[in-house]
Design a protein around this nucleic acid. Structure first.
Lengths: 127, 127
DNA sequence: CCGTATCCCGCCTGATACTG
DNA sequence: CAGTATCAGGCGGGATACGG
């Protein structure tokens, strides 16, 4: 990411929160992990059906990245037609509870946030 | 965000995880919340010093968004020179434990992820 | 001190077409 | 079925300059 001025940000480079956001702040990674947790093992197209609004390209890219990071496994069956199955690794599974925690917080607080945002926008546009 | 084809994604629009990522997946929001939790009340420049590598523009923008969402308060002292203090709201504070959970997971697992990523890249480039 | 106002680049993402 | 390859657009975010 930021390779320059390392000396200046050396303490921030070790900040775990930065790493988490850099890694999982993208649009699809977390959602895919959740789906694999909910449904267990899934084939490429089955996964695509659970997340209809992801492009095929982004699904492939995100799956490869998750595999590279050791969060999911990719098992290829040498058949015709080809079959590829994805599932969480142990490390991938260990992340789920923390995501669920955030999800529950969101479920409870998102209404407040949206209401607050509306009020704020009204105030601003009234001036 | 996606205003079209709502009927198709109606169930996904209600997915709390999507909301969380849409809202906190940006580069700075979570980091600012953590700093305000650690340090308590902070002035604009003090906050900037705790996060040196954010631009002044993005600090302002992110603070306004957090304020609009009801996660922080912004208190202006009508003095010369001006003083503005930021601190977490109750809702903002309630999010911190979940962020900490993720941070601890990251602290423990990031080394594995980075190692896995390296191995994967070596494999690929060997072919 | 605490911002706003512009300009602009990188790259993430989606659309589309093609392959073993 | 499960992918690559390629192209194009939008937008987040940085740099810079200015203002109360």
């Amino acid at each position: 990411m930021e390779e320059r001025n390392l000396e200046k940000f050396s303490d921030l480079m070790n900040c775990p929160v930065r790493h988490v956001l850099d890694r999982f702040g993208d649009k699809w990674s977390v959602l895919i992990l959740i789906m694999l947790d909910e449904k267990g093992t899934l084939r490429f197209n089955a996964l695509h059906h659970t997340i209809p609004d992801i492009s095929q390209k982004m699904l492939t890219v995100t799956l490869r990245t998750l595999e590279a990071d050791g969060l999911i496994t990719r098992k290829i069956y040498p058949e015709i037609p080809p079959r590829v199955e994805y599932q969480l690794t142990e490390m991938g599974s260990s992340l789920i509870p923390y995501i669920d925690g955030l999800a529950k917080w969101a479920l409870h607080n998102m209404p407040h946030i949206l209401r607050s945002r509306d009020q704020y926008n009204n105030k601003v546009t009234l001036n």
